[in-house]
Write a protein that binds this DNA or RNA. Structure first.
Lengths: 181, 181
DNA sequence: ACACTAATATGATGGCGATCATATTTGAGC
DNA sequence: GCTCAAATATGATCGCCATCATATTAGTGT
């Protein structure tokens, strides 16, 4: 049945939002188009009225997740405390799209990689802006290394099946960045 | 046809080695059991004589990759130079199993996570051993943060579709760890 | 050498999932 | 209000793949 143009835009937003969450939570391949549509309260057939393919959806979902996360924390220690927390580790679906999908994106077509690249760039710049003043070149280096350490720590903390080790990875990486920056 | 027990062990090793490479290269889901067997020079049917399931294979393949990588470089700068190099970034199939599979392992059953956890532990200890002398507690912190930064940098460098940015992520993270350690 | 069984090969099976075709409903523009 | 096309729903299709069943071959222990 046909719906309002407004409704249709709302549907598209809903699909994107659910896809963004599901992809982060379960990985790209493990989520079916039908599952996304069901989560959005629709049936699978209408999907191709909104997106060209599942991979097209991924690219938009990544962009969505990145845009949604662009409200930065002011200071680096505050950001770090949130980012490298048990809460963030355990809430993958609503968490950092890079930690959840950057490894996966290597295997995906250009559009998805491009969206991810934009997110990584933005993240580096955001961290650089939050760093205490110093030489521009050093700020960028610190921002890059901090971003890498944060993403890496979250990925490792999520991979590990041992809770104390997982906590330790988060805590020690956090202290290390705090100390170095 | 039946083969020598020796042959059979060789087949198993071959399957593991090809699986280890293929999983790193293309991801767990994108590799089929038949593909692994073909790469090992066998047909798909015999697979279940060697492993209980595809996921069982993954667990053993991770353990394999980790064992194969356990010949450490002596010094941290030397290890870093290899690890955060364009060559390593571009040779995923023979590269670090954590950078290739840690993010994926979060979605896999216990055995795979357990093998990965052992690898992460070993890597942390190896880095700690390679660090210049200092207080034990600080060494461990530096080792954990360095491991996280290295894995994160490699993942980000591989995700990005822009060569200069990718190179920059590797180079700056490397300098940052070198400097801090 | 023989019998037995282990290793592999060949050939199903069953399910899932991306995508497409067609039907249905109902906004939108006149 | 009427017409037409646009969203969505329903229902294929087609291919892939993990796993299993059965056949074939030939080591292994005697």
């Amino acid at each position: 049945m046909r719906v309002t143009q407004e409704q249709m835009r709302a549907h598209r937003r809903r699909i994107l939002s659910e896809a963004s969450r599901l992809f982060r939570e379960k990985g790209f391949e493990a989520v079916s188009v039908a599952e996304v549509m069901k989560a959005a309260g629709l049936t699978h057939g209408g999907f191709y009225g909104h997106f060209a393919s599942k991979e097209d959806l991924l690219a938009h979902a990544i962009a969505e997740a990145i845009a949604e996360k662009s409200d930065a924390e002011a200071t680096l220690p505050a950001f770090l405390a949130t980012y490298l927390s048990a809460g963030h580790r355990d809430a993958v679906g609503g968490g950092c799209p890079m930690a959840a999908l950057a490894a996966d994106v290597r295997l995906r077509p250009a559009a998805a990689r491009s969206a991810m690249t934009a997110g990584i760039r933005a993240q580096i710049e955001r961290i650089a802006a939050a760093l205490p003043d110093s030489v521009t070149e050093d700020r960028r280096r610190e921002a890059i290394a901090s971003a890498a350490a944060m993403v890496g720590a979250l990925i490792l903390a999520r991979a590990v099946d041992d809770a104390p080790l997982s906590d330790e990875i988060l805590a020690e990486t956090r202290r290390w960045i705090d100390h170095g920056a």
